[in-house]
Simulated scan of single mutants.
Amino acid sequence: MLHRFRTVLIVLCTLALVACGDGIVKRVSEPAASLQQLTVQANGDWTVALRLQNYSSMPMSFDDVALTLTIGDTEAGHLSAKPGISIGGVSADVINVNFKPSPAARLVIADALASNRTLAYSLKGTVSATPQEKKQRTFDINSRSTLNQAPGLPGVLR
């Protein structure tokens, strides 16, 4: 009888705990930013396809991007955008940012395109995002990667 009472008590406690939560863990993780594509326009300005990655388990609204772009060892300038987009949990989206690079960075890109070589870049700054049903947070971004010339697309690095 005592054994049966314990078993029933354990089952009831387990059911009560399961009923308390919906089973979904809502976790906020730092987002990431990277260049998906860089296109050199006819006037020398760039269009940057900036990939914003949401690693959180819930949707986040990306409100503000303030990043310094460095190409090779040359500071290209500051990427600023107010995307105003919501990105689902563990998903990504791309925004296009028109950008006026520094003259030195224009030369670095022109040289890389002319010699068809890989080019390192870094992004450093902040991304402000608002997790679903929470308040806005600012996340530090410090990423590095490389770009290569896109075959058959003059002036495009990916």
Score class of each variant (00 low, 15 high):
residue 3 H to D: 04
residue 5 F to G: 00
residue 6 R to V: 15
residue 8 V to D: 07
residue 9 L to S: 02
residue 12 L to E: 05
residue 13 C to Y: 02
residue 16 A to Q: 05
residue 17 L to F: 13
residue 18 V to A: 14
residue 18 V to S: 08
residue 22 D to K: 04
residue 28 V to H: 06
residue 29 S to G: 00
residue 35 L to V: 14
residue 40 V to K: 04
residue 41 Q to L: 15
residue 42 A to G: 01
residue 45 D to E: 06
residue 48 V to W: 00
residue 49 A to R: 11
residue 49 A to T: 10
residue 50 L to K: 08
residue 55 Y to G: 08
residue 57 S to C: 09
residue 64 D to G: 02
residue 64 D to S: 13
residue 68 T to S: 14
residue 68 T to G: 08
residue 69 L to T: 03
residue 70 T to K: 15
residue 70 T to L: 10
residue 71 I to L: 15
residue 73 D to S: 13
residue 74 T to K: 14
residue 74 T to W: 11
residue 79 L to Q: 08
residue 79 L to C: 12
residue 81 A to K: 11
residue 82 K to M: 12
residue 83 P to K: 06
residue 84 G to L: 03
residue 84 G to S: 07
residue 85 I to A: 05
residue 87 I to R: 02
residue 87 I to W: 01
residue 90 V to D: 13
residue 93 D to M: 04
residue 93 D to R: 09
residue 94 V to I: 15
residue 96 N to R: 14
residue 96 N to Y: 06
residue 96 N to K: 15
residue 97 V to K: 10
residue 98 N to G: 14
residue 100 K to W: 06
residue 105 A to C: 14
residue 109 I to G: 01
residue 110 A to Y: 05
residue 111 D to A: 12
residue 113 L to D: 00
residue 123 L to P: 09
residue 129 A to Q: 09
residue 133 E to W: 06
residue 136 Q to C: 05
residue 138 T to S: 13
residue 139 F to V: 04
residue 149 Q to E: 02
residue 149 Q to Y: 03
residue 150 A to T: 15
residue 154 P to I: 01
residue 157 L to F: 12
residue 158 R to P: 00
